[in-house]
Design a protein around this nucleic acid. Structure first.
Length: 208
DNA sequence: CTGACGATTCACT
DNA sequence: GTGAATCGTCAGC
């Protein structure tokens, strides 16, 4: 675990994000480490839960029907940048933009297991002690890592927010696909198995 | 310009 | 288990 903290990050390359299938990328992100260096402090957490938002035919996506607005514009960028937006007026949700320029696919990161900078996460979230909820749930995750809408549209291959791989591997059999959370308005598409979790991991956010 | 609502969380019953 | 908080975004007038 300590070996994670070194200078030689094995960052995921742009080619990882530019692939055409957001579902593949969402499942591939399980077990990777999301790192932020914000306010001069490094925090890192291993991703255990993601959701794919699969472009203009996905009713749950903000870009459904090729809707293009100031907010969704960043989803049309080429893969490898962040999409951060505000939900319920309070919560910042962090997404990874995928696919080619002009194709609005994205992956929402919903939960992660803290691995570094835990003291800072406690400070940011106002929690007294470490528990499973520290970076579990999309709102908690962004709070713990210090991500806000100020970081919308930045490159994930820079040094502020990025994702790295280490020697931690996840077997395909350990990844479970389920329906996405909080997208009941999407009709049939709400049932699509586009949510990926690391089976049995206690940091996965709870179902409602 | 106005109003309705959400890729959620937390406190409280 | 239930409901309030809270504000940017978007559609409609």
């Amino acid at each position: 675990m300590v070996s994670l903290i070194n200078e030689q990050w094995n960052k995921l390359p742009v080619s990882f994000y530019e692939r055409e299938n957001a579902i593949v990328i969402a499942s591939a992100l399980i077990g990777k480490i999301l790192i932020t260096q914000i306010g001069g402090i490094l925090t890192a957490a291993r991703i255990v839960e993601t959701e794919a938002y699969n472009g203009i035919t996905d009713k749950a996506s903000h870009a459904f029907g090729n809707r293009r607005t100031a907010r969704t514009e960043i989803m049309y960028a080429s893969g490898g940048v962040s999409y951060v937006y505000l939900c319920y007026g309070i919560h910042h949700l962090f997404n990874v933009v995928t696919n080619r320029s002009g194709v609005p696919h994205a992956v929402l990161v919903r939960a992660a297991e803290p691995v570094a900078g835990i003291e800072e996460m406690l400070k940011r979230t106002g929690k007294k002690k470490v528990d499973y909820s520290l970076a579990s749930g999309p709102g908690n995750l962004t709070r713990a890592l210090g991500i806000s809408t100020a970081y919308n549209g930045i490159s994930l291959t820079g040094n502020t927010i990025f994702i790295v791989a280490d020697d931690f591997t996840v077997k395909t059999s350990e990844i479970m696909a389920t329906a996405r959370i909080g997208v009941d308005y999407a009709g049939e598409d709400a049932l699509l198995p586009y949510r990926f979790i690391l089976k049995g991991n206690p940091f996965v956010s709870g179902k409602k």
